[in-house]
Design a protein around this nucleic acid. Structure first.
Lengths: 222, 222
DNA sequence: CTGCAAATTATGGTTTTCCGTAATATACTG
DNA sequence: CAGTATATTACGGAAAACCATAATTTGCAG
């Protein structure tokens, strides 16, 4: 079982619940940080002192407040931690249930588990900790495990996202084309942008552009 | 101090934290419900048994899962509870920090307190409970209290919201007009809808309809 | 009831978006 | 290198959205 655990989480309630969960598992060496910056500092110091953490549980989104921070999200924190301590086990612990982001966490940041906050999250968290402490397997909350494995047959690329973002930002199609041309984005003709939009509308089953932007916003794609 | 308290909240972590908070305040008669439907049932039964609750703490947004529910949000729950037990003290306990929605809760549903989930929410919650138990004053988490008092000079009415919602749902302007005509919504001409959209775009500084829907979605208006 | 102001509706023209077709360019295969 | 598939670009007409102006209706005070 893990000996030394750190939690990055801004909400008091989750701190409390995780603390209690760890207590149940007889893990007493437990620290928590309400800001990503603090979490990284603690992990660095522990490494220097030759008493490194062996588990990081990290939320993904952190509320902004008066304090100026360098690291604003769990994604960034995890990325940075991976660089300085590659062997650390990492659990992402979040309300985020959107496919692409989670996929990226496993693929790019090599997290070891993803626990979805919800009606059964404490049970899931315990399971995750147990799996991770006894093996090198990954753990994913069952509610999203299936969604994660279904692959999008149609890949939405970088340009698609750019178009969607510009649209949601109030840019007209003609203006987007101008921007693309002046910044050397490859497909930059009227037809190309129109065709891509048409494909996107088809894929997301959107009736029109307003609908498309609305859907993709809800899905967290933009 | 309150004697009998019920919490409507889907996340285990918040349930746990609230339970502990109430314990600190020596409130032991405490129930919680993970679904709005269950909360309403319990409140109804307690009324019938002549042992009504005297405080409801309710989250606003509830995750959808396999279970079919009649009441899907805390807003609706609060509305319904107000009808059957007008004297019940109600604390909305949510991550929601958008002005119009909170305002509406105080004005239309006459909630007694709004506690924002965040880095200091447990402290706020304790304060709210203490204020409510000893007086008829309202309580609002300080982070949003100021934002709440700034008034929107231009009032966005019901029809505006309807138009925005239909738009974000992929309905074309012509279709919206049809729907309005067949359901007797008063201004239902092409011009009227166009004029309202134009006003809305002006007010929200939106370049076009896509932008407008994007902005109002972000603001939590739709 | 009359007259005024505000809201709603009607009308017509302009711009933007939409969508099909076709031409051209690019990439990859044998 | 030729051939084929795919992506990009070009063009033109149709539909939807946009916008200004004017006519009509509605609500209300006198």
């Amino acid at each position: 079982m893990f000996k030394k655990v750190i939690l990055a989480e801004d909400f008091e309630e989750f701190n409390l619940a995780v603390k209690q969960t760890l207590n149940d598992l007889n893990i007493v060496d437990f620290q928590h940080a309400k800001y990503c910056d603090d979490a990284l500092t603690k992990i660095k110091r522990a490494l220097q002192d030759n008493q490194p953490y062996d588990l990081l549980i990290s939320d993904l989104s952190f509320k902004k407040d008066h304090r100026e921070v360098k690291i604003g999200s769990g994604d960034e924190l995890i990325q940075k931690v991976r660089e300085i301590q590659p062997n650390l086990k990492i659990i992402a612990y979040s309300i985020e249930d959107k496919n692409p982001r989670i996929k990226s966490l496993f693929e790019n940041s090599e997290i070891d588990a993803f626990v979805l906050k919800g009606r059964n999250s404490i049970v899931d968290l315990k399971k995750a900790i147990q799996v991770l402490s006894t093996s090198n397997e990954k753990f994913i909350s069952p509610e999203i495990a299936s969604a994660l494995h279904e692959k999008n047959n149609y890949e939405i690329d970088d340009v698609d996202i750019k178009i969607l973002k510009y649209l949601s930002d109030g840019t007209s199609q003609d203006e987007i084309i101008e921007i693309f041309k002046s910044s050397d984005v490859k497909p930059n003709s009227k037809s190309a942008v129109e065709k891509r939009l048409s494909k996107l509308k088809d894929f997301f089953k959107a009736n029109n552009t307003v609908h498309l932007v609305s859907i993709t916003k809800d899905m967290g794609i933009i």
